[in-house]
Write a protein that binds this DNA or RNA. Structure first.
Length: 644
RNA sequence: GCCGAUAUAACUCAGUUGGUAGAGUAGCUGAUUUGUAAUCAGCCUGUCGGGGGUUCAAGUCCCUCUAUCGGCUCCA
């Protein structure tokens, strides 16, 4: 007999060789029907796997991430089975479960797969499910595995097997389709009741752009048709929050083919909103002892040779422009830091001047590949809320911690609660990618790790993700469709001070090298506004929103009074407009609601007579009449609360 | 840059097998003088993304360029 410990801590006894499915049956028939896989001592396994020793067992259903993972992974095999039946020459890459669904990378050879082929594949998948095909696990030797896939010319599988250890190789058979796979899987396809192939994309084999590009089929599946419908519905809803759509509707920004791709045009309302964000941050930075500077949009190419950016990114940048007479080369500014280093160098610095914190809302230009451009989140011209902190070795941690405080304050004020923090370290196996010695890299990496620990920040660590000049701490936030974007960033840099030969005179009257911290709490104004738009669905906080109110006169007769109200509110530092169109009040309200304007002020005979405004709040309705001064106070108070 | 898709009025979208373009919204004009999510009537709006080709005839078919969308790769 063996003891099996369940997640609630209870221990049950079974005969050795019992399966997880048997355990589920012993608990309840319903569980046995819904269980998808088992997590045994932390490893996900097939339900049919005999259990021979004492263990901790968790039974995974659709409600567990592990259960979903198993379900989608098996769904990928189902899709591959259908593809193999329809395209006998297809060669298979990998087909994993992902956060939302699954995909399979397939080499279709001469055939070109199009979206119109999806229906055909889905139909075949349905047939396979209906045939009651089972998923059978087989253990095979490395040689047998190589022979099997070799004989079928499955070059990608052969390549994968070559990297595996003999004795740990398993196949899963489902009808005529056999796949190299670690598992686990469902015992058959019957639970997969609803599925949809969602998109098709090119994907380089093993993620390397030098390899052949395979065709990746993205899909999703569910145990119930209703769940699929709800998922598709949810996707539609998410698209309504897309910043590109809202940016157009709310007249915040635009793009023009005539201006060029990836070059955003900030419209009046978007510009004002962005300015408010910039002023907000500038005020915070002033409190933290920053000084504000402005630098040109171009710089001599030698500046970027000094910084190392030209060697690293010169080929992939907008190419330098030449002065007509002297033939000197100037680059569009891809980074603000070299300019700031020059500002540091202008006058000799004492240790008493440090930390020296130079901030700039600096617009930079980078040649991003055309396929990468995406609304405001990935553009070729953007404004960083940049600053560089020049400090001593001993000040790094304190300065780093202060920047973390600024980032957290901003996220809190704007209610970004679901962010993740990521520490990016260099790849120790690929050191030639980076500039700087082992010693300075170790120092910088430790400074970040210690600061994060000190601030109690919950961060993931990624090796190989560091910038070429130093390690960093990034803050990531997801957009409406669940894509992750990097916003805030803090980076320690020992290299630029070296390259620019920056110095300060210490208390010992000797020259020392300062350390530099690059940081941008928003990241870029463009990306930040984009993500903010998607988070708020365009329902901005009152302090940020373009129009806080709109005045709706009942008829032309009250236009004069409406103007008087507008004047009073303007003097109280509120912002809004008057809708004096010849429309009925219901229409004006409807339009104001669609434009997401927070307060609608209805003015007619009664209001004019008593100096009142009738206030209607967006999405909430009538708040009743009040004095216009009281309305102004209400808005001012709310703005104050939002920013405290 | 690569794979696949898309491009019609200011916006959202129709446009059958090729026969020189439509709707709603917005805009303009007039009537109405309006009280918490759409007042009525009339009018205007297009190099059908650009260029080339096939055809008696192209929004529709083919080629090419540009931009956009979903991914891959990249992201100082």
């Amino acid at each position: 007999m063996i003891n099996i410990t369940l997640p609630d801590g209870s221990i049950k006894q079974f005969e050795a060789g019992v399966t997880a499915l048997d355990v589920a049956k012993s608990i309840s028939e319903g569980l046995a029907r819904n269980v998808l896989s088992a997590t045994i001592d932390g490893e996900i396994k097939d339900l049919s796997m005999p259990i021979t020793n004492d263990c901790n067992l968790k039974l995974n259903t659709w409600n567990d991430e592990d259960g979903k993972h198993t379900f989608w992974h098996s769904s990928a095999h189902l899709m591959a089975s259908a593809v193999q039946a329809l395209y006998p020459n297809a060669k298979f890459g990998i087909g994993p479960a992902i956060e939302k669904g699954f995909y399979y990378d397939i080499d279709f050879g001469e055939d070109v797969l199009r979206e119109e082929d999806f229906a055909k594949i889905e139909k075949k998948m349905t047939e396979i499910v209906q045939q009651g095909v089972k998923l059978v696990r087989k253990e095979v030797s490395k040689q047998d595995a190589l022979d099997y896939f070799g004989s079928k010319n499955e070059q990608y599988k052969v390549e994968l097997i070559e990297g595996l250890e003999d004795g740990k190789i398993t196949f899963y058979e489902s009808g005529d389709f056999t796949d190299l796979c670690r598992g686990p899987h469902l015992s058959d396809f019957s639970p997969i009741k609803a599925f949809k192939i969602t998109s098709l994309a090119g994907a380089y084999w093993r993620g390397d752009e030098h390899n052949k590009q395979l065709t990746r089929l993205y899909a999703i599946s569910f145990p119930k048709k209703k769940e699929l419908d709800e998922y598709l519905q949810m996707l539609e809803e998410a698209k309504k929050r897309d910043h590109r759509k809202l940016g157009k509707e709310l007249e915040l920004f635009a793009f023009s083919q005539n201006v060029g791709q990836g070059l955003p045009l900030w419209l009046p309302k978007g510009t004002e909103l962005r300015k408010r964000l910039e002023n907000f941050l500038a005020k915070v930075q002033k409190q933290y002892g920053y000084v504000q500077v402005m630098t040109p949009h171009i710089g001599n190419v030698n500046l970027y040779k000094t910084s190392g950016h030209f060697q690293k990114y010169g080929k992939d940048s907008f190419q330098p422009i030449q002065t007509p007479q002297e033939g000197e080369e100037y680059m569009l500014k891809p980074m603000n830091c070299p300019h700031h280093c020059e500002i540091y160098r202008l006058m000799p610095k004492s240790y008493k001047d440090l930390p020296y914190r130079v901030a700039e809302f600096g617009t930079v230009y980078r040649y991003e590949m055309s396929g990468e451009l995406h609304g405001l989140t990935r553009v070729r011209s953007f404004t960083q809320d940049d600053a560089h902190i020049f400090c001593t070795q001993d000040q790094i941690k304190e300065e780093f911690c202060k920047v973390i405080d600024i980032v957290l304050y901003i996220f809190k004020t704007l209610k970004f609660e679901n962010f993740t923090a990521q520490i990016s370290l260099r790849d120790p196996n690929n050191k030639e990618k980076y500039i700087g010695t082992d010693e300075v890299w170790d120092k910088a990496e430790n400074a970040i790790i210690e600061s994060v620990a000190e601030k109690g920040l919950n961060a993931v660590t990624e090796t190989g993700e560091a910038a070429f000049y130093g390690p960093k701490l990034d803050f990531m936030v997801k957009d409406a469709l669940g894509r992750s974007w990097q916003l805030g960033t803090i980076q320690v840099d020992y290299n630029l001070p070296e390259r620019f030969n920056l110095e300060y005179i210490g208390a010992d009257n000797q020259k020392h090298r300062p350390v530099m911290i690059h940081r941008a709490p928003f990241g870029s104004m463009e990306r930040f506004v984009a993500v903010l738009l998607e988070h708020t669905a365009g329902e901005f906080p009152l302090w940020l929103t373009p129009d806080q109110y709109i005045i709706l006169p009942i008829s032309e007769k009250y236009e004069q009074y409406a103007k008087q109200v507008g004047q009073t509110l303007n003097m109280a530092d509120l912002r809004g407009t008057i809708d004096n169109r010849n429309e009925k009040t219901g229409k004006k309200i409807r339009d104001a609601e669609i434009k997401k304007i927070r307060y609608m002020l209805i003015v007619g005979e009664k209001e004019e007579a008593e100096g009142l405004v009738s206030v209607r709040e967006h999405l909430k309705g009538d708040l009743g009449a009040m004095k216009m001064e009281d309305f102004a106070k209400l808005v001012q108070e709310e703005v104050r609360k939002e920013l405290e």
